[in-house]
């Protein structure tokens, strides 16, 4: 993702949206269906309930309401967004409404240059591919689909040929951490924006199996040390700990819509506050019950020492904590370890 030149304008709008509770970014989970079976995925069942799934008209209504609510950025995702029967119509409509539309995909459905060109012509602005290694067996081990690596690599090439802005989201796990620098070098060589994120969340039904893939504290230390040595600018930067600062932007400057039209504060916080097909956005958004998520401050977190160096690196996610510890205010051990590793660099 290229950095826009007018960062001051964008930052102003991000701050404004967060302060005014205007959802500048909305993630749309078009479907729960997926053509991969990633070990780390938080979706418990890759199926849509036919009785609850939205029609195309419903999705148009959702986009209309988001435009009115102040959304600028739409992120199409899933499951695999391209498995939605309405994917192309939704993309086209989103573009026509003046949204900046991007997508997160495994690329398995992008098999031809025509498809990649169509994505560009239908107005997609950024493509983020889930790619975990340059080694096919490592990637396929994580996706549990043999041949998925080859298909994703091919899709990336096709989208680059189409002139699309392409990024790679590499989840950092204990299975691919040794290969991650090769992948990053490959991305740099191909002018692909690279992101490595070690955050793995439980499944939405409480199943903790995905957490087995989390990198250990030692592995994280190795990774961040090596990366900082190789790319000094990548060194994690502290954010001054301020007690009265909100821990995240969920339910303020961003929101998410599930495959059934439920409005949730973000993809990690799965509590639905209303359905965007049947209710007005503002009616749902102003519900008092949402404030418990949007009003969480640094000072509310449990077990954080404000004087410790690591408190400046804590990227607490109330949604992950809620799913993992049944307490949105309790940072997980993993979050603490990650903050300590970053502070030690």
């Amino acid at each position: 993702m290229a950095t826009p030149q007018n960062l001051d304008i964008l930052n102003k709008w991000r701050l404004k949206s967060s302060a005014s509770w205007i959802p500048l970014q909305a993630s749309l989970e078009l479907t729960n269906r997926c053509n991969e079976r990633c070990q780390h995925c938080y979706i418990p069942s890759f199926k849509d309930d036919p009785k609850k799934v939205l029609s195309l008209h419903d999705w148009y209504l959702v986009l209309d309401k988001l435009k009115k609510a102040g959304t600028l950025y739409i992120v199409l995702m899933g499951g695999e967004a391209m498995l939605s029967p309405f994917f192309w119509d939704i993309l086209k409509y989103s573009h026509s409404k003046g949204f900046h539309t991007s997508m997160i995909t495994n690329g398995m459905k992008i098999k031809t240059q025509e498809t990649a060109d169509k994505l560009r012509n239908f107005g997609i602005k950024q493509m983020s591919f889930s790619l975990y290694s340059l080694k096919p067996h490592v990637h396929d081990f994580l996706t549990r689909v043999k041949g998925s690596h080859q298909k994703t690599i091919k899709a990336i090439e096709l989208c680059q040929n189409a002139g699309l802005e392409v990024g790679v989201n590499a989840l950092l796990t204990n299975a691919n951490i040794d290969d991650i620098f090769d992948l990053e070098d490959w991305c740099i060589e191909k002018n692909i924006v690279f992101k490595a994120d070690p955050t793995i969340t439980p499944k939405l039904d409480g199943n903790l199996d995905p957490l087995k893939l989390r990198a250990s504290k030692e592995q994280l230390l190795y990774f961040f040390r090596a990366r900082t040595k190789k790319f000094p600018k990548s060194k994690p930067k502290p954010e001054t700990y301020i007690e009265s600062t909100h821990v995240c932007n969920a339910g303020k400057g961003k929101c998410a819509i599930t495959a059934y039209g439920d409005l949730i504060p973000c993809i990690e916080i799965r509590e639905a506050f209303g359905n965007l097909v049947t209710e007005d956005f503002s009616e749902i958004w102003k519900k008092e019950s949402m404030n418990k998520w949007r009003n969480i401050l640094n000072q509310d977190l449990k077990g954080i020492d404000p004087k410790s160096k690591s408190s400046n690196f804590c990227e607490h996610c109330p949604g992950i904590s809620n799913n993992e510890c049944n307490d949105p205010l309790q940072p997980t051990q993993f979050q603490k370890d990650l903050a300590q590793v970053k502070a030690s660099l």
Binding site: I9, W13, K16, L24, L72, Y73, H95, G98, F99, G123
Partner: peptide, 15 residues
């Protein structure tokens, strides 16, 4: 139409 836009508080951002 290739430029995303949004209005907020009587101001507009165009990308």
């Amino acid at each position: 139409t290739d430029n995303p836009w949004q209005c907020m508080d009587q101001e507009t951002i165009i990308l």
